[in-house]
Write a protein that binds this DNA or RNA. Structure first.
Lengths: 158, 158
DNA sequence: GTGGAATCATTCGATGATGGAACTAAAGTG
DNA sequence: CACTTTAGTTCCATCATCGAATGATTCCAC
């Protein structure tokens, strides 16, 4: 295999992976949309719950920045989520202009039931794979997630 | 390494990957939300464009089924997309109750520019990886995408 | 061929998610 | 201390979405 051939193969495999990741983003969005209807939850609400779960500490400003919502839309959404028992809000002691948003066990349970069908289908695929391969893929996805988070931050600043 | 250890490691790697995929779904959702605001496009519109691009042939019913929208919301959205020059609609010759939805070059260009920042960040990660590893990961993602599509179909039927 | 049922996309009117303006409370700065 | 900035909320207008109704088309049993 010459260097020219190696370069072509690298760029093809890389492009393939990017394309599959793009398709995954579309497919899982559609899965979540289906589930949001089944559970009568608006999908922006679900996005906010996912953000609160993925971050260590969350304020309304984190949510409005992260999802690109206006402050007033964020307030209205947190009102909905609080009414539904999915989040709690508490004034931050060190900066009383702000509020700390916490996820509830109710929201975690709803989230878990939402991914039940998907988890079953995914398990069928993953159980046929080599364990060391899965570990390497998980490590790669971790790096890709960091890159995606950096891209979001850059897009938010642009 | 005993069988008991191997079993634990396998389930841990599998769980790690599922978790990273879940995180990826959240992160890329937030990236897309940022971009939808930058480009003044509603996120449901983006989801519809992605669906039309990922499927070979699309009708309003495919879109309303796929995204869980009502037929009337689907019509309103296609009106928006058509006005923006992102899709075209043509009556299907073999069944004149229906409409065939086609993506335009304009939409493809907008989609491309939307993923520019993300593509750059991802390229930095992928360029450090072994090519054969990328190819294996791409193949695994392809299977995961098929499983996700099956899960959406099951969720839609439930 | 005919009548009725089913399918498909659209129109219409009501509901509620979202953004912009205004506001209050709190923190930061010179 | 006075002024500016930050953070979240309230109020009101806009528009995305839903359910009901509609018209056109296709399917199916007789």
């Amino acid at each position: 295999m010459t260097n020219a051939n190696r370069r072509d193969m690298g760029s093809a495999a890389s492009d393939d992976l990017v394309r599959e990741l793009r398709i995954f983003a579309g497919e899982i969005e559609r899965y979540i949309l289906q589930m949001s209807h089944t559970h009568s939850m608006h999908r922006t609400d679900l996005a906010a719950i996912a953000l609160v779960m993925d971050r260590e500490t969350t304020t309304p400003k984190d949510i409005s920045d992260g999802l690109g919502l206006s402050p007033s839309a964020t307030t209205a959404m947190l009102d909905r989520l609080e009414r539904a028992g999915h989040v709690t809000r508490e004034r931050v002691e060190t900066d009383r202009r702000s509020v700390h948003v916490e996820i509830t066990d109710t929201a975690i349970a709803v989230g878990g039931s939402m991914f039940g069908i998907l988890a079953r289908h995914m398990r069928q695929v993953l159980d046929t794979q080599d364990d060391a391969e899965l570990a390497r893929t998980a490590a790669l996805m971790e790096q890709i997630n960091t890159a995606t988070r950096a891209a979001s931050a850059e897009a938010a600043g642009a």
